[in-house]
Write a protein that binds this DNA or RNA. Sequence first.
DNA 1: ATTAACTATTGACAAAGTGTAAATAATAAG
DNA 2: CTTATTATTTACACTTTGTCAATAGTTAAT
Lengths: 131, 131
Amino acid sequence: MYGNNRHHGRGGGHRGQDRMMGRSLVRMMQPAMLILLNRGPVHGYALMDQLTEEFSIPVMNPNQVYRALRHLEGVGAIESDWDQDESQGPPRRVYRLTSDGHEMLDFWVKDLEETRSILDRILKAYQEDVS
Amino acid sequence: MYGNNRHHGRGGGHRGQDRMMGRSLVRMMQPAMLILLNRGPVHGYALMDQLTEEFSIPVMNPNQVYRALRHLEGVGAIESDWDQDESQGPPRRVYRLTSDGHEMLDFWVKDLEETRSILDRILKAYQEDVS
DNA sequence: ATTAACTATTGACAAAGTGTAAATAATAAG
DNA sequence: CTTATTATTTACACTTTGTCAATAGTTAAT
């Protein structure tokens, strides 16, 4: 079983926060994946682990990762082949960045930086409001 | 005409970045709106302006804002009434936070903070990779 | 007074994205 | 041989988003 059911707790009250419109890390996953792929070829399952372990992006379902990979391949950002030296399990599809993918990574990094500055502005505004 | 067509440029090359899966500020808009609503009642059009001017969230289409407002009302985070003292235009629907909305705001702020830390981790990792 | 521009909200439909569950399959451990 | 783990794929309903346009009141110009 893939290991995290703790997609924000359901322990409090917070009706309606488990599934709704709002900020969503699924949307952050894609750029993050390109960054990881930039280090070299990987297969989906490993990528999934890195997303959780290195970035703490909660991947609730492996399908999300495979989905995103297929999407990235669809737009030509990555390419794949079946792995030769297979290991503990069924054959693995290994992905690598294309040159278009590198361009896209560039774009997304700038975009993420802009996002961060917007996020900072939002949080700062709130902190000033409540202080 | 509502004033911003500059939803990241289409000027470069970057095939496929205008419309796709990836990070999306639309998803950031909702928590931002709650923060603005926390200051007091507002109507949609004003909210739209504040999102762009104060937070630099590019709202390409006013519909997005109204949609989000209807959604937030649907989940009980906000309530609305028609404005009494009407001004330059047709009647305006004025929204205010409910107590559920305050709870939700609390939740989203913590969530945004977590998002920021993930974002930081992602960008930091990339900067270390390329340096 | 007709037109144009701005303020303000709503509607509708196609396309894209997401949650969720499960099927498939190979290998390793017991 | 059964179970657990690794690994990828499929399917369907539901939600969200893009896009475009309709509606309508107010203000300013011709």
